[in-house]
Design a protein around this nucleic acid. Structure first.
Length: 285
DNA sequence: CGTTACCTGAAA
DNA sequence: TTTCAGGTAACG
């Protein structure tokens, strides 16, 4: 249940282990294959794309992991809700909910575990169509306030929905969005276009900071997420609002509330994150 | 734009 | 037994 910090942690764990290694085999549970690789993709086709290829490097864009292959193609992996990629000795026991594995020349395996089978592996010749669907990285300092403000400007959708939309910016998910909105003191259901300018500035900074904190803490392990070695992160110990409904706000003591915004469970402090004043308050706070 | 479906297990 | 889950694509 990986968002940008969790995917980045896995990437940084696995990159030095897989770089320069040749793939010597691929196994996939037949019942999972059409969900994992796409309907109509045979195991033979997947093997012919991967076996014999050397992994040049491991990249990331948004929540996608990019295994760069030596034939200029890319194995694009998305973990969705419960996907895991685990670096294991070839003799290690089968993982819980293991659905696939990549065999590497040094005897290690990358084990793919995915309880809910939502995760995907796709071989892509050209990443352009994928990248075109993704907005900028919120942690990229080149993604400035002006561009950020433009994504919110004029939008009627709740600011939370805008921040979750991977086409506008890529990498935030439900945990970090709630945390960023708390840090910026913005109520999640505020229409994007009605977030006051000062709050837009705070939110721009908050999105970067919560993601960077998540990376520093190696991700949030509420339930399913583990890193590339199978170890949990610690970011869940430091969340301010996510899944803290009914508990006191660390800043003011008011009880955290839970609602649904954009179809997602949403957590906020009703006092620290007030509704913006609608009339006469359109100027900077 | 909001809602539904995809899949499975844990928790209520 | 029912509801819920950190994601996204496909609906209406």
């Amino acid at each position: 249940v990986p968002e940008l910090p969790e995917v980045e942690t896995i990437r940084s764990d696995l990159a030095p282990l897989v770089a320069g290694r040749c793939i010597t085999g691929v196994d996939v549970d037949p019942a999972t294959l059409p969900l994992l690789a796409g309907t109509g993709v045979s195991l033979d086709a997947l093997r012919s794309s991967l076996v014999g290829r050397t992994i040049r490097g491991l990249g990331r864009r948004g929540k996608y992991l990019l295994f760069e292959l030596d034939d200029a193609r890319t194995l694009v992996v998305h973990l969705r809700m419960t996907g895991r990629l685990l670096w294991r000795d070839g003799a290690a026991p089968v993982e819980p909910f293991e659905r696939a594995r990549l065999l590497l020349e040094d005897g290690h395996h990358l084990r793919w575990s995915d309880l809910r089978k939502f995760g995907t592996w796709r071989i892509m010749d050209d990443l352009a169509p994928l990248l075109a669907r993704l907005g900028p990285e919120p942690i990229d300092h080149a993604f400035g306030l002006k561009a950020f403000a433009a994504t919110l400007s004029g939008r009627a959708a709740p600011v939370k929905a805008v921040l979750l939309d991977q086409r506008r910016m890529a990498g935030l998910g439900n945990i970090y969005v709630d945390e960023a909105l708390f840090q910026a003191r913005v109520r999640p259901d505020t229409p994007g276009g009605q977030v006051p300018p000062a709050a837009v500035r705070r939110l721009h900074t908050a999105c970067r900071e919560v993601l960077e904190q998540g990376i520093a803490n190696r991700g949030a392990s509420f339930k399913d997420y583990v890193d590339g070695q199978g170890n949990p992160g610690s970011q869940h110990m430091y969340v301010q609002v996510f899944r803290r409904q009914g508990k006191p706000c660390y800043a003011c003591g008011t009880l955290i509330e839970r609602t649904v915004v954009g179809g997602r469970g949403t957590h906020f402090c009703p006092k620290c994150q007030p509704r913006p004043r609608r009339k006469g308050g359109s100027g900077a706070a």
